[in-house]
Structure formats: C-alpha cells, structure tokens
Design a protein around this nucleic acid. Structure first.
Lengths: 143, 143
DNA sequence: TATTGTTATACTCTATAACTATA
DNA sequence: TATAGTTATAGAGTATAACAATA
C-alpha cells in the first residue's frame, strides 16, 4: 500500500467511510425525527415509494428477518401510512402499499433529506462533486 | 444546478450517499455480529480505544441521552468488556475503561471492518482512492 | 417440501421524567 | 443552579423458534 501513502492516507479509507456513514445516518435520523418517524420506519417508506412490495422482498431489501418485517409493517400500518393488501397471485402473501398520507410523508422526508445532504456537499467544487458521485457509484455497484 | 448535470448526476449525490451509508452500516453490523457484538456496543468500544471516557462525553459522541448511555455501558460491563472506574477529579463521574478482553475485541473488530472496507474499495484506481479520501474528509470536516 | 407470513418470547436500544449526589 | 449519573417506565427494533396456510 506504499502507493497510497501521504497526508490523505493518514485517516484511512475505512475511517472516513465509517465517519461519513455516521454523518449520513445521523442526518437521516434527525430529519425523520422531525417528521415523527423512527429511521427504520422512514427507510421502509422509502422502499414502498416505487410501488407495492411483499413482506419477503422487504426483508431482503432491508436485511431483516420475517418477524422483524411483520413488526415494522404493523407499526407503519397502525400509523395509517401503509396497508396490507392481499396479493392476487399468491394467497399466502400481502402487498404493502403506501396510503396517501404515507406517500406524502415519504416524499416530504425524502425532499428534506436530499436538501440537507446537498447542502452539506454544496461547498464542494463542481469537479469534486461529480467525482465523488462517480467514485461512490462504482464503490456501491453490485453491493 | 445546471453545472452538475450529466450521467453521473442522475443518481443524485444524496442517493449515493445514503446507499453508501447503508452499505457501510450493514458491513459493520455483519462483521460485529460475527464477534457477538450488536453494532451499538461495537461502536461504543471504538470510542473507548483511545483511552477512558466519561459517560457524558460518550453521550455527546454517540448522540445519546444519559439513560441510553447508562444502559449501553451496563450491557458492555456485564459482558466484561469495560468497567466503570471512579473519576479521581469528580466524585459524581465515572471513567469507562476497556478491559483486556474488550481491548482485544475492539482491535479484532476494527481490523476486520477495515479489511473488508479496504477490500470493497480495493479495485479503485489509486487516484480515485486518494481523491475519495480527500473529498470525504472535507465533507465531514466539522460535522 | 418449500415459501409466506404470524405469534410468542427474549433481548437490545432509545427517550422522558423523576431522582440522588456532587460541583 | 447546573452537571454526572441512575432508576423506572414505555415504546421501538431485532432474532429465534414454533406455527398455519398456501405453493
């Protein structure tokens, strides 16, 4: 790793990634707390914006066990943000669908999270901004 | 934002940051699960590696309320990974200190997390690697 | 037999409020 | 009065195991 030494390397890639991750997680939590949403419920809403999703697929997307998804959907449903509807193609399964209130909340939350993250990075020179997006995209590709 | 359009911008900075954050968090959780550690306890250990820390300072560092820190330290102490020792300069306060077992576990966990993150980014060209570290450091500066 | 989802149970995590003790 | 920390309580999040119903 001699080719990767120097002042910038002192912090270490892992260290800055973890630090950035904490930063983003904290911002996400704080924003959604203002909307009265625990971060896990907010994340669930994010995964429902594109359309109805089954419980099993939610578990895979969120890296959760079946019973964890059951509880999370219970709480989101109790708040009136989504509903379980029977899957017409599988009588065992449900499709979780956002209510109007849930869709509005998801959109508001997403807008605010995006705004604050963009603001965070807004001081970066355009070149750095573009490079950051590019590199992170490659980093996350396939994971 | 016309100066920031193009193929790379389609994903959006916020989106890739959130995605990267999930990626890092999940990796951190998975690694520490192998060590029998919930991610919060692992993060607590990280903050103790540099030396003993008081409860209040832990709360500030981890963005936690006082009682949350009490519980977290209770559980870490029950596992024999750290101990409360009286602060000689303030008879109200404790200094949380890693035990030998806790220090070993923290080091092992850190090594493994670092290795997997470095591996994740190992395919990046050295220039991108250095730039990523540089940009993220500036992004996280002061936050 | 495998998959979808729930229930029961236990533990972890977090916050608020009320409290003790020290600064 | 302010700060360091605990306790009590309540809710949220997660996992494992046992279960029901459907594929």
């Amino acid at each position: 790793m001699a080719e990767r030494t120097g002042q910038l390397e002192q912090a270490g890639l892992a260290a800055v990634l973890v630090r950035l991750s904490h930063l983003v997680q904290h911002l996400f939590s704080e924003v959604n707390k203002e909307f009265g949403l625990p971060p896990q419920q907010a994340q669930l809403l994010c995964h429902l914006v594109a359309g109805p999703v089954g419980m099993a697929e939610l578990g895979r997307a969120l890296h959760l066990g079946k019973s964890s998804v059951t509880g999370l959907v219970d709480r989101i449903e109790r708040r009136g943000l989504a509903v379980r509807t029977p899957d017409p193609r599988d009588r065992r399964a449900f499709l979780i669908t956002l209510t109007d209130a849930g869709a509005r909340l998801a959109e508001d939350s997403h807008r605010e999270v995006t705004a604050r993250l963009e603001k965070l990075a807004g001081e970066l020179p355009p070149d750095d901004y573009a490079r950051l997006v590019s590199v992170i995209e490659r980093l996350a590709a396939g994971n």
